[in-house]
Design a protein around this nucleic acid. Structure first.
Lengths: 336, 336
DNA sequence: CTGTTAGCGCGTTCAA
DNA sequence: TTGAACGCGCTAACAG
């Protein structure tokens, strides 16, 4: 890589003259600026990132910690993050916590050495289970802002971007009730996570708020590693009045669909299904699933905006924002 | 962030003493080292990344350019990249080219300013179509090594990690022939990409090499945006002797399965199917697809190894390697 | 208008 | 055993 020094030498001017010329400092004569810029272009000069960062104590880099990149939601979100970051001249460094508390701590520590200006992250599952949060506090104390997305912690003061999870299931449940459904089951496949709880709550609220719905809430919790499809099938056989299913995650959604089909039930005449899912999945389901989709891309880009805003304008006494990104309810062939 | 200077001041020693102590320089007395290290730990001192990079002209950061992060293959690959990089103390900066030539050029230029020590990339579709490669040459001339994975360019001298695409379809085809299939169709949904061509070639080779197989190769090319499922269905109706299908990508695999099922054909009695696919997809297919899976994770981690090796040991007159990662053929319920 | 100088944080001579 | 001084590449205050 060519440096300012070499350009200066080649043109017999001082180093600072070159620096000023390249930064369009009006002190330098138009002629000199032209000569310098031409040579710079010719030699493909690019200011050294490390030097600029050292000087300015800004890296223009954002650290992103995602729990699981194979999860389509986070992949989409990363796409939104990358797009927004690139549009604002920021690079992103990605770490994958793998849902591990330790890896999360490690990643934060590793990047908090002047590698990044701030963090974007979704809290790892293990961190939530252990109820740990001091590592986040430490980072914020060090002056590095954090924006949490999707999985956030109430105990941490920082900007947050979340889905309105409660409302999403509330709407879905209300819709099924308005279809005339009398016994709606909610399948929770991710109950250990905060979002699972919120979504379940929305379902329960909708039922409580409805005057026409008589049955009690019916929540089927499936643990990781369980044989989802057979459990669902069993439940349906034992409770033949079930006429609506809301799945809190996409795997359970497809499994339910398979289970319902194998029972010979007609969709959506006998039973309706709505699932949290990604668009891709819909392509592969038949009949095409009615879904609640998270605007993952938007959560990502919004998070970047919040972080950059904070980096530029700083923090003035707890003016942290929590932004809610709307979900989208799409009715296809598995609802009336 | 606390600096060496502040530690020095607090302990009334010189800056260089602190620096040496922290780097276990034997010049410093054990006692002083201990005092300094204790304070450093207490103050959570971390050497400033920019300063170290500037000094050493090494960033310990790898630039990764993927064409599409929503593609499960690349997501998996990134997982492999991140894991291997983290294990070796490297950070990864991710750019998404979105299959665009321009974005690819931009990303390379943007990171070639001392942000990264080298690149890992899969060539964007547009770049392949335009047959552009000077941007890669430029980067390599600047001294930044590139490792290409999955989609590579013959015209560029660099380390490469690829799937043995030709062999993968060769094996799949051979297997179907050994099942007694007499008219095997290959569906190519990505013919504009190099891998599509290679996979098609493997299929053709297998047929040519077989003495028992009489039919000519039958390749159905589907363009982007075409109605894959109806095209496949039409083809099957017009050619009822087809008893085997190999799909070169995962979408076509599922579409074929749906088409075959809707024709009322029995699987695998009447017809066999094998598709390039990700494991996730298999979960959603019924009957469960026999697949050719790419070891995406391994391609990613292997790429990192190659790059780090080159960064550490440099380049000695064209000793570039091309590593082939094996594919995996998994027979499930859509083959005999 | 141009050049000299200092300093960002660090490691590494060289001198004491 | 410790410290002073220099330089990585850059910007900016200050001199000329």
């Amino acid at each position: 890589m060519i440096t300012i020094k070499e350009l200066a030498k080649e043109l017999n001017v001082s180093i600072s003259t070159v620096s000023k010329a390249l930064n369009d400092n009006p002190e330098i004569s138009a002629d000199t600026v032209k000569r310098i810029k031409e040579l710079a272009k010719l030699r493909n000069y690019k200011p050294n990132k490390s030097a600029v960062s050292l000087k300015s104590s800004k890296t223009n880099t954002i650290g992103v910690i995602v729990p699981d990149i194979l999860n389509n939601f986070f992949a989409k979100l990363l796409y939104g993050v990358e797009s927004a970051a690139a549009a604002n001249g920021y690079n992103i460094i990605i770490c994958i916590s793998n849902e591990s508390y330790e890896k999360e701590v490690e990643s934060l520590q590793l990047l908090a050495n002047g590698t990044v200006d701030g963090f974007l992250l979704a809290v790892a599952e293990e961190t939530q289970t252990l109820k740990e949060d001091t590592h986040f506090k430490k980072i914020i104390e060090e002056g590095l802002p954090i924006v949490m997305f999707d999985r956030v912690l109430d105990t941490i003061d920082c900007d947050k971007v979340i889905i309105n999870d409660t409302e999403s299931t509330y709407s879905a449940t209300t819709h099924l009730i308005s279809e005339g459904r009398k016994n709606i089951m909610l399948i929770n496949h991710i109950d250990e996570l905060n979002v699972g709880t919120l979504r379940t709550q929305g379902y329960i609220n909708a039922i409580n708020d409805s005057s026409s719905y008589d049955n009690k809430p019916l929540v089927l919790s499936i643990k990781k590693g369980d044989e989802a499809e057979s459990i669902i099938l069993e439940t349906l056989k034992n409770n033949t009045t079930i006429d609506g299913i809301i799945s809190v995650d996409n795997i359970a959604g497809i499994k339910s669909l398979n289970a319902v089909k194998s029972m010979g039930l007609k969709i959506p005449q006998d039973i309706s299904l709505i699932a949290f899912a990604s668009d891709e999945l819909v392509e592969f389901s038949s009949p095409r699933l009615s879904t609640i989709t998270q605007h993952a891309y938007k959560i990502g880009s919004k998070s970047v905006e919040l972080l950059i805003d904070r980096l530029k304008n700083g923090t003035t006494k707890n003016n942290y924002k929590t932004v809610t990104v709307d979900y989208e309810l799409t009715f296809r062939e598995t609802t009336k």
